[in-house]
Write a protein that binds this DNA or RNA. Structure first.
Length: 318
DNA sequence: AAGTCACTCAACCGCAGGACG
DNA sequence: GCGTCCTGCGGTTGAGTGACT
């Protein structure tokens, strides 16, 4: 027994909005304001679902929205936010005046993910692809060679859009743990090496180069392995500094700028992750092997985070 | 010119949670 | 406490469009 539909789907118009429909919503909102969207279609003379009206207003008609392309500063901010909180698009959008969660989500899926991948950075973990796969091997492998790394001209990125998505295809059990721990994992070495490799052995979908289920990804993505090796971060920031103020600078208008370059931001957050991992619990291993279960480890980490860094969570509406 | 493919982005869907009676 | 309504959210879809063959 599912939830009843919000309206009679068979009798409401769907698809793109016409100028006339937009005008009706604008006129209605100008007089009555927003709210009670379920009644707006009837009152405004629209044959649309109320939910659709709200979405049209929220994502397109709102007068405070920006309809121009994303600035480099906005893109950097999205990447930074995504690194910290993941795909909480509404939270990220709130840091970007004039942008909606839909805008941010679409821009991420169509542009920024590819941008990161071209840099050899996994867009899910924001770590170098080779490191992500190496760590995954440590977690899941138990020493067996489900896949191995070896020099190859075949970049992993030619086979999949994301190392993370490949892993997700392999197993889902590790996902939540890995995702949550990634942010706080103190890398054994901060010197990342983007060693090209390819899989050998199962899973077959990896062998076959099957792309992920990501809807916006392109099967044509053929990205050469970057020669650049990310440099060892220079410690200029500490997590506690980060918490003193809003962890993510808000872009105010299109003229807003960030003092940090993209590369500097990479270092910025690497160091924050390193710092917090050292302070959360020196006794807690960052690997799953020391925990009784994935869930236990995640819950433990969450509790530690909440007790020691409440501001971090508050800033992102946890 | 026609067909195919990849990409973008507006819109839809289902679910979750809060407010309220 | 329960049911209903409303809103917000993240994931996904598909129409439109431009590039390419």
């Amino acid at each position: 027994m599912g939830r009843p539909p919000c309206c009679d789907k068979s009798n409401v118009k769907k698809g793109l909005w016409t100028e006339e429909e937009d005008a009706k919503i604008l006129a209605y909102v100008a007089i009555h304001g927003v709210g009670n969207w379920s009644l707006i279609p009837k009152k405004a003379g629209l044959n649309r679902c109320g939910k659709s009206c709200r979405l049209r207003w929220t994502n397109y008609l709102r007068p405070d929205l920006k309809h121009d392309s994303f600035s480099p500063q906005e893109e950097e901010l999205i990447i930074e936010c995504h690194r910290i909180i993941g795909s909480r698009w509404s939270s990220i959008a709130r840091k970007l005046p004039g942008r909606t969660d839909n805008d941010v989500k679409n821009h991420w899926n169509t542009k920024l993910k590819k941008k990161l991948m071209k840099m050899g950075i996994d867009p899910v973990t924001h770590k170098p692809v080779s490191q992500v796969l190496s760590e995954f091997r440590n977690i899941s492998g138990h020493g067996n060679a489900s896949f191995k790394t070896e020099p190859s001209n075949n970049s992993i990125l030619t086979q999949s859009n994301s190392a993370w998505e490949m892993m997700r295809n392999t197993t889902t059990n590790h996902e939540s743990y890995y995702n949550s721990s990634m942010m706080f994992t103190n890398s054994a070495s901060s010197e990342f090496q983007t060693t090209p490799f390819h899989f050998s052995g199962h899973p077959s979908n990896l062998l076959n180069g099957t792309t992920s289920s990501c809807s916006s990804s392109s099967s044509s993505a053929s990205i050469t392995q970057p020669n650049q090796v990310p440099q060892t971060p220079v410690t200029n920031f500490y997590w506690s500094d980060f918490l003193l103020s809003d962890p993510v600078p808000q872009v105010v208008g299109s003229s807003a700028t960030s003092d940090l370059t993209f590369a500097q931001n990479e270092h910025h957050f690497n160091n924050q992750a390193e710092y917090i991992s050292q302070n959360i619990d020196s006794n807690a291993s960052v690997t799953c092997h020391s925990a009784s279960s994935f869930v236990d480890e995640i819950l433990d980490k969450d509790q530690e985070m909440l007790s020691q860094f409440p501001q971090l969570l508050n800033d992102f509406d946890y």
